[in-house]
Design a protein around this nucleic acid. Structure first.
Lengths: 199, 199
DNA sequence: ATAATTATCTGCAAGTTTGCACAAAAATAT
DNA sequence: ATATTTTTGTGCAAACTTGCAGATAATTAT
């Protein structure tokens, strides 16, 4: 059953996805409300009425991305394979996303655009820290699981390995957006996982 | 002997350092020429006459930072200690810089602010890629040196280890700016180095 | 039908941002 | 002294950005 007033012309979820695309390209400060309006097909006043000001739009778009993307990563990380396979699968699962973009790979919208704003904005900083924490926690859980199954060296600290593995993800995001000419993401992932797992 | 015309009121190097401070805080897009003028004490037209437009100021400020900072890091990396000590020293050498900032740690001005702009600006992207490449190359050289001295596993690829070690630096930059509440940079560095070196 | 509700659209007003033109100032060269 | 050179400073014009007010449209409730 429909709500009472005039029906929305645009689906909020679709609009947030389009808004994310704009922020992904140019970052928070580099994107104007006009850019977002163009990307979503909505007018500025409609955007503001639906989501709030620019910062609110940004945070909602990022939050929406995190739900979906981190879910995908967690599925890969806990796919039930060997530790090496699951880790490699975890990183490779980012690549279709990190490589999207109208004119080339844009990396991760959170790591590559929220980091700048984190210095001056406590809310965005907390959002970013929470996202990084969740990645660390997921990876730590996976290493704990591996440790229980004897797939990790006896004295190894799962939390330290979780943070180390998280670091690879951050770098992958940055390197993808920077487009280092000779960087091969797949080779980097496989070699790094093997090095970390002492294979 | 002085040059011919009216003497400069401000030292270009000092001005670029002040401009870097402004960009470090708010990023490229988030910093206005007025902000830079205030930080340097110069008027906007003087800034433009001395360095060019905003992008030119940014690139010169970043280039100046890179010369000094990467020099410091290289000195730590090739201090002549054990591989573990030199690597730990390399990362710890970043912390005084990464932790500076008027209201909290700001991370690395290159990794944390150039990455956003890299998507839309080929020049800044090339600058960033070159900086990341140089870090990778430095670390690779150090691992090659270690390999020759038998301090690395026989089959290990120094380039892969160089990229892995570079990744830790990228993450350190991002994490510092994000201020994860429970993140301990020194512990992260020591544990990660030990894990990578299979100790 | 009429009222009530919700969303959209047009337009404006205030503030920012940028780049440039032009005049003034401070030094050296002749 | 006068001209030349270089930097600095004031001011303006154009474009952009943002937020909001008020009108219009589309739907449901009575």
């Amino acid at each position: 059953m429909r709500p009472r007033g005039r029906p929305r012309k645009y689906d909020p979820d679709t609009a947030l996805e389009a808004a994310l695309g704009a922020f992904w390209d140019c970052g928070f400060a580099g994107t104007s409300l006009e850019d977002i309006a163009e990307a979503t097909g909505m007018s500025r006043p409609s955007l503001q009425a639906a989501f709030g000001d620019k910062k609110a739009i940004y945070r909602k778009a990022i939050a929406r991305f995190n739900v979906e993307f981190l879910g995908t990563l967690e599925a890969a990380l806990f796919a039930g394979g060997s530790l090496e396979d699951d880790l490699v699968g975890f990183y490779l699962a980012t690549l279709p996303t990190y490589r999207t973009g109208p004119d080339g790979p844009l990396g991760c919208p959170v790591i590559c655009t929220a980091t700048v704003e984190a210095a001056g904005d406590a809310d965005i900083r907390a959002d970013l820290a929470a996202a990084l924490d969740r990645i660390d926690a997921d990876l730590t859980t996976r290493f704990e699981q591996a440790s229980e199954q004897g797939a990790l060296a006896p004295g190894a600290d799962p939390k330290a390995y979780g943070q180390l593995a998280g670091a690879l993800l951050h770098s992958l995001a940055v390197r993808t957006r920077a487009r280092q000419p000779d960087f091969d993401a797949e080779a980097f992932v496989r070699a790094s996982v093997r090095a970390v797992l002492k294979i």
